[in-house]
Structure formats: C-alpha cells, structure tokens
Amino acid sequence: MERAYSLLTVRSADDAARVIEGIASTPTPDRYGDIVEPLGAKFRTPMPLLWQHDARAPVGQVEFATATADGIPFRASIAIIDEPGTLKERLDEAWQSVKAQLVRAVSIGFRPIEYAFMDDGGMHFLEWEWLELSLVTIPANSEATIQTIKSIDTTTRAALGIGGGHVVRLSQPARARASKAFVIQTIHRENQQ
C-alpha cells in the first residue's frame, strides 16, 4: 500500500460529535516528488480513519469525501466510547492531539491503479484506490498542516454555562520550497473569552 501525506484543514472541532473536516489529498508534489491526482481517486464512504497508519488502531470513519481538481475535501468523525480501556484511551488521545494541534496532518493509504514515472524520479499516480485516511504527526507534504480549528458547539456550551467557542487560525502554509523543508506555522488565537 502506498501512502501520501497532505493538507489537513480542520474547519470544525465539535467535542460532542468529534467531527473534523479537511483536505485529504492535493496535487502538490510531496517530499518524495510524487503526485497523487485527486480526480483519480476511487473510493466509497464510510472509510476507515486510522491513527498513524496503523490498521490495528482505527479511531473513526471518513463519512464524506468528494474529489476536485484542487484536492479531496472530507468529513470524518473520531468515535466516542465511555467504557474505560485501551480503545477509549486511543480515541481520546487522537481527538485531544488534533484539538491541541499536536497532530496536524492526514495521510491517505492507497493502491495504485494507473501511474507514470516522472523525469525527476517521482511517480504521478493518475488513478488509485483510496483505502484509508490516517491522522499523522509528520507529513511528507510541506503543505500538510492544519489551518483552522473552529468550535461549532457554541450554543450547547453556552447552555451549559461554558464560555463561547473560539477560532484558532494558523498562518498560511508555506508553498513547497526546493528543499521541501518542514515549516512550523505560527498560531494566532481569535475570539478568546
């Protein structure tokens, strides 16, 4: 199975539902020089959402995805269970890591169907079967960072007497550089109460 890392734009972080939204794949070359064409994706949802590409560590499901020329926007949920144990700990760790911006990227696991070798040595995956999406710590794509996390449960929080939601915006991802070095983004907080 091949893996390709890409942009994770978390637009919403709802504690009650643990829903994340983002971009699963872009046509930007990764640090290995490979390109995975978003419009070449073949998949069905729901699809497994894994923790760090470990097939023994599922954390949720990809519920929605649609391919565009610029990328594949997706919506996924991290499961919630109340029973104490290893599974609860893994699910809570995954959710807390995304919210705390410690895990800021996603990676697709796929099977190539049609591909071509490029002059620079990379591969251009024209058609591929998308098997899983993983939350990952270290992306191969220099643009693989979370841009926005927005709490969407402000009504519920207000009803419980908890302060309103807030938006955290990260600076724009750096464009791929020749060295394709990892760039740490600056965090800006808005609407804090």
Rank of each mutant, 00 (worst) to 15 (best):
L126E: 06
R90G: 11
Y115N: 01
A159F: 08
D82Y: 02
R157Y: 01
W128G: 02
L160H: 12
S134K: 07
A158K: 11
Q147V: 09
G109A: 09
T86N: 06
W130M: 15
Q96G: 03
I146Q: 14
G163Y: 11
K150V: 03
G122L: 00
E93P: 01
E129V: 03
L102R: 09
K88E: 06
I80D: 01
Y115S: 08
M118S: 00
R75A: 12
A100Y: 04
T154M: 06
G109P: 03
W128Y: 10
G109H: 02
G85K: 03
S171W: 05
V98T: 01
E83M: 14
D82T: 11
I146A: 14
V167Y: 00
R169G: 07
I108V: 15
P84R: 11
V136M: 02
L91T: 05
V167W: 10
E93R: 08
F74H: 03
D119V: 15
E143V: 08
A76W: 07
S107Q: 01
A159W: 08
D82N: 11
G165P: 08
L126H: 04
T137I: 13
T155M: 06
F117W: 13
G121E: 03
A105N: 00
V103K: 05
V106A: 10
V167F: 11
S171T: 05
A144Y: 05
D92E: 13
D82I: 00
S107E: 12
G71V: 05
A174H: 15
W95G: 13
E114K: 15
P173V: 14
R111L: 13
A79E: 10
T145R: 13
F74P: 06
L160G: 07
A100T: 01
T86I: 08
A116M: 02
T86A: 12
L135V: 15
T154G: 12
E132G: 00
Q147C: 02
I138V: 15
R111K: 14
T148P: 01
A116W: 06
Y115G: 03
Q172G: 08
N141M: 12
L126Y: 02
T137V: 13
E129K: 10
P84G: 10
I162D: 02
L131M: 14
T86Q: 10
S134Y: 12
A159G: 07
H124A: 09
D120N: 11
A158W: 05
A116H: 02
I108T: 09
T154Y: 09
H166S: 14
L135I: 15
A144D: 10
P112D: 07
L135C: 13
K88Q: 13
T137H: 15
G161M: 06
I152D: 12
A144Q: 00
G165W: 04
A140S: 14
P112K: 07
F117L: 11
L87M: 07
D82L: 07
Q172I: 13
E83Q: 15
E93W: 06
I113Y: 04
I162N: 07
T154S: 13
L135T: 07
A105Y: 01
R157F: 04
I108K: 02
A79M: 02
M123S: 04
P112S: 04
V106Y: 07
P84A: 09
R104K: 09
M123F: 02
Q96P: 07
G109V: 05
L126K: 06
M123N: 00
P173Y: 08
G164R: 14
V136T: 13
I149C: 14
S171F: 00
V103W: 14
T148N: 08
L126I: 12
S97L: 11
I149M: 10
R104D: 00
W130A: 04
L131A: 09
Q147L: 06
K88L: 08
